[in-house]
Design a protein around this nucleic acid. Structure first.
Length: 397
DNA sequence: CCTCCACTGGAAACCTAGGCTC
DNA sequence: GAGCCTAGGTTTCCAGTGGAGG
């Protein structure tokens, strides 16, 4: 037995050792990599640059809104320009603070990010938003900081928590003397403005820049540029790049997805000891990405949401809120967790829908009432695999 | 056209964890 | 350490609703 295991392992090691090295610089393929050149975004770079360049003279710069679908280069342009600005701003204390509102998903947590970037200690709970804002403005004034706050996925914050925080942030300058704070909001949703109160809208969107999707040709050239730095010469086939850009191009020109595909495919190719990244690696990567996305979304769910998900699996397809709730109650009793109300489960179902794990559409059955029709979009097998790893739920699986 | 089901989803109350003040 | 405060999550309450069936 021991001998066999050793042989299998030897085989794995041997493959890695004899296999050709494909990736020479993996950082180029990371999501947070900022290239020296951002092709096809010159116009946007200039616009953003013009808007925030006033900082160099010590003046307040405009608040900015960047629009565009995912993977159109909004975040990377914002980071690129602010990074260049930072290099030039020797005469002032410029701070670039970045916060993704999907990760820091409450007003308090966003302010916490901001406080961290200006070296101000704020307890992670216990203070009112007003108190945190007061401390921040005193601190910023004292240190004479010039702050550009990048709020990524700002539409998510506004949809879930309203625009109160944005209002406070745009007003904070009234208390700053000296120093200031400008906001660069990045939104994936083009209709995001409709969710904003006019008073916030007017001050937040002093300038707006729209990012159109990349065309398939543009994505191809971006990939080629990245691949030339990231990969060993001749270790990627043209077919692989073509397929990769075609796949990403068909999905509203998402460059991030294209680069992700390339990275995962390269890892897969290296692992199997291939000499060259081929089209089949890209196809495998497509599956992997989808699986990883689901795995991440599922594992980070709270126990209650997982139980709801499990009860959807137990119900037949096209089940309703009521059926799911009945099953959910049984499951809670089995595993010994607290039973939440149907109202809350209804909300959890909506949250799962938002995550794309299930689809919940409201249907009316006439005099048999209105309810959500729930179908899961993920293969039950994959869900079960993830749920098995949960300590509490593993009891019944 | 009206009724009435099985919910939805808004609003307010309530609970909990944690910080602040005295 | 008691008594206060707040944010965030949950419960409670309830008005609102689309449309099949009468």
């Amino acid at each position: 037995m021991v001998g066999e295991s050793k042989e299998i392992l030897d085989d794995v090691f041997q493959k890695i050792l004899t296999g050709k090295k494909i990736i020479v610089d993996p950082t180029v393929l990371n999501n947070d990599y900022i290239p020296n050149k951002l092709p096809y975004r010159e116009k946007q770079i200039v616009s953003v640059g013009q808007s925030i360049a006033l900082v160099l003279k010590g003046n307040k710069c405009s608040n900015l809104l960047l629009y565009g679908k995912t993977g159109t280069g909004k975040t990377v342009v914002a980071r690129y320009v602010t990074e260049k600005l930072l290099e030039r701003a020797s005469n002032i204390k410029l701070i670039i603070s970045y916060s993704n509102t999907r990760i820091s998903n409450t007003g308090y947590r966003i302010l916490l990010d901001l406080a961290n970037s200006v070296d101000l200690k704020i307890p992670f709970t216990g203070l009112s938003i007003g108190e945190v804002l007061k401390r921040l403005s005193i601190h910023i004034s004292q240190k004479k900081y010039f702050i550009i706050l990048i709020l990524d996925e700002i539409d998510y914050l506004v949809k879930t928590h309203g625009d109160d925080l944005l209002y406070d942030l745009t007003r904070i300058n009234e208390n700053l003397q000296p120093g200031f704070l400008s906001v660069i909001g990045i939104s994936n949703d083009l209709n995001f403005k409709e969710f904003l109160n006019p008073r916030v809208l007017s001050s937040l969107s002093e300038e707006e820049i729209v990012f159109p999707p990349y065309t398939a040709i543009e994505i191809k050239s971006i990939l080629q540029q990245r691949a030339s730095i990231a990969f060993e010469k001749e270790s990627i086939s043209q077919g692989a790049i073509n397929l990769c850009s075609a796949l990403a191009g068909s999905e509203h020109g998402d460059a991030r997805r294209a680069v992700d595909l390339l990275r995962i495919a390269a890892e897969l190719a290296e692992r199997e000891g291939a000499n060259k990244l081929e089209e089949n690696h890209i196809r495998l990567a497509v599956q992997r990405i989808e699986q990883d996305r689901i795995n991440d979304a599922l594992t980070s769910l709270p126990v209650q949401a997982k139980s709801v998900l499990f009860s959807i699996l137990e119900s037949n397809s096209n089940c309703t809120t009521g059926e799911v709730y009945d099953n959910y109650k049984i499951i809670c009793k089995k595993i010994g967790i607290e039973i939440l109300t149907q109202r809350r489960i209804s909300s959890i179902l909506s949250e799962l829908d938002l995550l794309g794990i299930i689809t919940a559409s409201i249907v009316s059955h006439g005099r048999y009432g209105r309810t959500k029709k729930i179908t899961n979009t993920v293969t039950p097998q994959i869900i079960k695999e993830v749920l098995k790893e949960d300590q509490v739920l593993s009891i019944i699986l």
